[in-house]
Design a protein around this nucleic acid. Sequence first.
DNA 1: TATGAATGAGAATTCATTCAT
DNA 2: CATGAATGAATTCTCATTCAT
Lengths: 195, 195, 195, 195
Amino acid sequence: MESSRRREKKQRILDAAVIEIARRGYHATTVAMIARRAGVADGTIYLYFQHKEEILSSLFERAMGRFIAAGRERLQTVTGAKERLRAIVELHLGLVGGDRDLAIITQVELRHSLHFLEALSRAQVGEYLAVIADIVEEGRREGVFRAGVDPVFAAKAIFGVLDEMATDWVLSRRNTRLESRADEVAGFLLAGLVG
Amino acid sequence: MESSRRREKKQRILDAAVIEIARRGYHATTVAMIARRAGVADGTIYLYFQHKEEILSSLFERAMGRFIAAGRERLQTVTGAKERLRAIVELHLGLVGGDRDLAIITQVELRHSLHFLEALSRAQVGEYLAVIADIVEEGRREGVFRAGVDPVFAAKAIFGVLDEMATDWVLSRRNTRLESRADEVAGFLLAGLVG
Amino acid sequence: MESSRRREKKQRILDAAVIEIARRGYHATTVAMIARRAGVADGTIYLYFQHKEEILSSLFERAMGRFIAAGRERLQTVTGAKERLRAIVELHLGLVGGDRDLAIITQVELRHSLHFLEALSRAQVGEYLAVIADIVEEGRREGVFRAGVDPVFAAKAIFGVLDEMATDWVLSRRNTRLESRADEVAGFLLAGLVG
Amino acid sequence: MESSRRREKKQRILDAAVIEIARRGYHATTVAMIARRAGVADGTIYLYFQHKEEILSSLFERAMGRFIAAGRERLQTVTGAKERLRAIVELHLGLVGGDRDLAIITQVELRHSLHFLEALSRAQVGEYLAVIADIVEEGRREGVFRAGVDPVFAAKAIFGVLDEMATDWVLSRRNTRLESRADEVAGFLLAGLVG
DNA sequence: TATGAATGAGAATTCATTCAT
DNA sequence: CATGAATGAATTCTCATTCAT
């Protein structure tokens, strides 16, 4: 009960952080700004997060958690490596494209330092890449994908393409929907994977 | 004559900046640290750069300049879209992989803020993408690449793969040579492009 | 309650500023010096003042506030233009002469820049001049002062004499009391005003 | 010959300084700005002045020199205390009002610090006050001015009025000519002095 | 738990002054 | 005499973090 209230307030702080950081960048955003938007006192932030940086990593973890949960759910209903890859592409672009503020954070702010990026990478992007690699592996076993493709390598390549599309969409302030490029992306990737 | 001395000292400062920033990140690096490593006084930095941030953008411009020059030179000696793409891949991975400190900067530090990333993107990455798009276009005309591939899209996808490989290499402190993955990367990309 | 504590601390900072600035001048006084004397941390200053310059203008406002309050009070108990002018002269010299540190600030430091001086002038000296002009006007109506005297001009002239006496007293480190010149000053001014 | 060229360049620097300092204030004006406007190198300034502050005091000395020279000349042709006082008033307002840039400096910038103001005061304002005091003394001897007036005091009062008029004119950006107030000022002062 | 006033370390930047050329 | 590149001390202001209430 307590715990739920606590979780709620933590979410409120994170929501505030997304908006502020997306708007002005991580370094230009002060803890006080986040506190004000969240409607709490400056000091309260430190009852929920140890450092300012922990807000950023929590943001990442929350995003990745949703990402992975959505992925799991979606993949359960889809079979066949090609369809599964297509599903991942749609999901990735759909999720990133669904919240521009969050996208700014995942595509730009989270990459602000080597140390930070390494930590993120090891922790959770690895898991995400593994999911993709599994699909590629599955495709090879099914004989749908070329045998010469290394799943681990392919996962990175796929992630690279998705990530670049996402970043490109964030930087170009165009009003297109990112998700609308899913077919094109999936087509390109499948062409490279299919024998 | 004067000017050459000036250019020389500017280079010295940039060289110092690469090392310091790669080591501790842009924000944790003080102007004083760069000055010390360059062997000049703090104030001297400001005779060559207007702001600390201008050091970072100069770093990027210098890197891109070398990149593009090397690319132009290389492409002049290579014909055929497939070979040209292969050459670009080798070049990209070779250049990024040739200087880990610089790679840290191009793959991580230069992306530290939306504003900054936008500026970079518009200015010079666009030019680079155009070079790649031209190769794809050429391949389509030659009938080597599939007609269904949009050159602009393909250029981003190719860049995405290269960029992800580079970032992955930077983050994994492995001692492999990045360039050694060129064949694999080129193979994957060509598979996606060739009919 | 809170507010009173806040006001108190603000006063403490201003008191410290008077001493430091009088001693070494505005430009040679650092915010750190004021903070130390006030017994607060450097950063605390900025919870009460936006800029260093705002300390100076607050000093002026505080001084003028007291000046005007004292003036109002005094003038209520005095009637007749001649007596009122005499009262103003006594008050002006008495207040300036009562605190040498503050006098240094009002007579010297507050005039350190055109921009600043303009702001002060427009804001509050104007009000003070108006009070004097009213007395002159009153004297004319009473037939005590010459009809040919322009009240606005006379107010400036009176202020000029008072101000010069004050500055002279500040600069000459003599131990005379400034107030002791009040009779002489009032006599001179009245001679010029009375028919 | 050398010496005349030297003097000329010194004047050029001072002329530049008047403009720059009047425009932006003493503290906001850098030595480099003055050098640029004077058309010399930064270092050259230091061949003519020991410190930046010496430029300011030289400015004052030059202004006072002209002031006193003009005063001497004028007073030689005028007789009678009343007429001499009138002449001084005209001269003072005429000279200050004749060059707004210089006026900004004499009325504002030169007063920026106690230390500086003291030095000026002792050195040359004293001499100027003495000239005025002499006139008052003369008037007393002639029986034109009241016997009760202390010449030294009167000189300060007169200077105070003139100074306030000058400052007022500088601060009000009105386009009136300062000199046009000479009659009014002289009338007021004489009323106070004449028996 | 929550507050928000206070802290004080920290850093970018400026600019008077020097001095080798 | 003149130059102007180089110096480096010096200072304002910010802001993550703490802690008494």
